[in-house]
Amino acid sequence: MTIPRFWREIPIRYNLMGSKCPLCGTVFFPPKEICKICRRVSIDQMIHEKLSGRGTILTHTTVHEAPTDFESQVPYYLAIIELDEGPSVLGQIADCTNGDLAIGKRVHSVFRRVSEDGVSGTIHYGYKFVLDHSR
């Protein structure tokens, strides 16, 4: 990942900063410049909306064959999480085993290392999730 791209996305990655359409109230994550429901009348109207990081697992999977940067973490767990504000987000579930996960379980976001640009490059911090009952 290029440094400028990571830097631009810091509010999204660190604080789950989404956007909200003030016309219909729909919340988007990642943030959108235009509401997909209200369309052009929402241009320049969208407001920043920080998400709570709390949500429910819609579905989950276990990764055994990972991209190079994530090989040391296998097996690791990904889930699509429906956030309480509405949007769904793909995220890694940390500090758990496959047996801990189930559709419908509650999670909350945590601040973790997500990847790094080699041993001498920058570290990419961001959100992951943990199960409510475990952490």
């Binding site: 040391s72 973490q73 940390a94 500090d95 601040f111 973790r112 290392r113 570290i123 911090y125």
Partner: peptide, 16 residues
């Protein structure tokens, strides 16, 4: 620490 934890991530969690 887990593989994805370091002094910065723990500092953020404690501070939040």
């Amino acid at each position: 620490p887990a593989q994805d934890e370091d002094a910065a991530t723990m500092a953020v969690e404690a501070s939040r």
